[in-house]
Design a protein around this nucleic acid. Sequence first.
DNA 1: TTTATTTAGGATAAATTTGTCCGAAATAAG
DNA 2: CTTATTTCGGACAAATTTATCCTAAATAAA
Lengths: 144, 144
Amino acid sequence: MFSKACEYGIKATIYIAVKSMRQERVSLKEIAEEVDSPVAFTAKILQSLAKSGIIDSHKGPTGGFQIDESKIDTIKLHDIVHAIDGDKIFVGCGLGLEQCDASQPCPVHDKFVGIRDNLKIMLENTSLYELATGLEIGLTHLKR
Amino acid sequence: MFSKACEYGIKATIYIAVKSMRQERVSLKEIAEEVDSPVAFTAKILQSLAKSGIIDSHKGPTGGFQIDESKIDTIKLHDIVHAIDGDKIFVGCGLGLEQCDASQPCPVHDKFVGIRDNLKIMLENTSLYELATGLEIGLTHLKR
DNA sequence: TTTATTTAGGATAAATTTGTCCGAAATAAG
DNA sequence: CTTATTTCGGACAAATTTATCCTAAATAAA
């Protein structure tokens, strides 16, 4: 469903959010460890999340990644996925047709649109805040 | 959502079904043309659909592909997707964790499972028959 | 100012998916 | 039996995704 890049990106963002709620910055190294993702690849993903303004990055000693606390409950899963994978999972025909819409649908159009709308709604309604608190209170986990 | 292989496989199967309802066999060449898919790649996919028993293949002149008419409304979208992509889209954690279930969930577990169940139900309830008739009566299309 | 630390970013490599090519096997028809 | 047609299946190639490596740039602290 999600690309590996997205999986890592989501996990990393949630971890950064938890730390940010404690006013702490985290390094790439720590993130990759805690999230069980390849360091260098994670670096690329964090880079694009930083460019999208979802996370803040800072170089040098005491540097690392952090999320503006005020943003944590504004940021939705949708924003993270969109920053990493673009809109390709939200757009386009289920069977790859160039022209496919309600007036000229492919055989699975309606059913496919239904599922995808569900997904989109879910992503738009899931806040980073709820994901981060779930992790912090030990309800969910990011490894294994 | 679906792999390219799945997209081509679904389109091809629907096309074969329409022809089969008219007691006609179709060649790989015709299928690839009508479905707008790469011939050789489509051949591979039809091969695996044939091995799974979803379509019937026959070599030689007058050969080609056909679907047992009695099966057309038994075959579900789920069977086609499963024959081509296996169960990878139905199984596994949304964030790639090895151990992730209701008792030890990842942060997106519940939401992800919800969406995936929807998808699974849709695939299990969509028959090849309805997809093929939709195409035959001109309600849907397979190209462009 | 020097040094150590950390992210940025380009080049490259490995793995997977997508796609092509071609000879072999089956088979229908002359 | 021979020939033409069609799928089968293996090898190979291209494209994309995943992942690594290394140097540069920023920056905090000694």
